[in-house]
Amino acid sequence: MKTYTYTEKKDTRSGFGAGLAELGRTNPNVVALCADLIGSLKMDEFIKENPERFFQIGIAEANMMGIAAGLTIGGKIPFTGTFANFSTGRVYDQIRQSIAYSNKNVKICASHAGLTLGEDGATHQILEDIGLMKMLPGMTVINPCDYNQTKAATIAIAEFDGPVYLRFGRPSVPIFTPADQKFEIGKALQLTEGADVTIVATGHLVWEALEASKALYEKGISAEVIDIHTIKPLDAKAILDSVAKTRCIVTAEEHNILGGLGESVARVLATNNPTPQEFVGTKDTFGESGTPAQLMEKYQLNAQAIINACETVIKRK
């Protein structure tokens, strides 16, 4: 079985900051906007190197989304930066009308998504953003898994013409994907090959899925782990090819099971190849204050939760 190790942990938001800084050097049309969260979004380097291409909006996210839409008229490629909660739910109608329906080339970059934001608690821990954004026609939804992948995704979406929601997070997590990767929007990555169960994970849950697959291997269960960094458009072929072998699947995401990756996968399976599926995600609940590790355990979003789900779904075959 292929195994993954890491030598360093870093936050995915720093991957965004590094990618944005590189874009600042390579693409003169890229501009950045922030609603009073420069440090949290790791946008300092871009701003230092390109002050004229940065717009500090203040605490006014609705205005930020509109200004971003307007900047595309004139050929700019705006990257907005704020927390995931304020990047989606707070400004849903602005995104819907001025960006998605108007098909504006805005990159909505959202940090501190999910429970791993930690101690700030449920007001800031959005667990509904993937659902909100994937329902918008024409919106691409990406949730990379580590620093390197987030950096590569940030660079890749500048080349893509159309609105994108890029979701990343606050805590330091293992870096296990290559630094020189080419990020392909909509292309799932098979991380391990397996025969007994498919684990489809996104964001921070990809590393947990790899940890789960190691433990399952010790128990004689061979798990195929797929990194779905792009939730929309979903790589249906990768999922269908895998379940053709394994005949059961577990989806894992730091998001409500209602409206998230799991439901997108379920639709693909229901219409193509009905397959037993278990969902690792929050169970229609808000979060709370705590350390990221405590929260991931309490809300069953860690490797152990994935192991349990795999054992359950295998019995349902």
Binding site: M64, G74, Q97
Partner: peptide, 22 residues
């Protein structure tokens, strides 16, 4: 730009105006 849901046009216009300056 699409409009109809009210209150969004000025923000968009500001973005377009700042793009003109750039």
């Amino acid at each position: 730009i699409a409009s109809g849901s009210l209150g969004q046009g000025m923000s968009v216009a500001i973005g377009a105006a700042q793009a003109k300056k750039l």
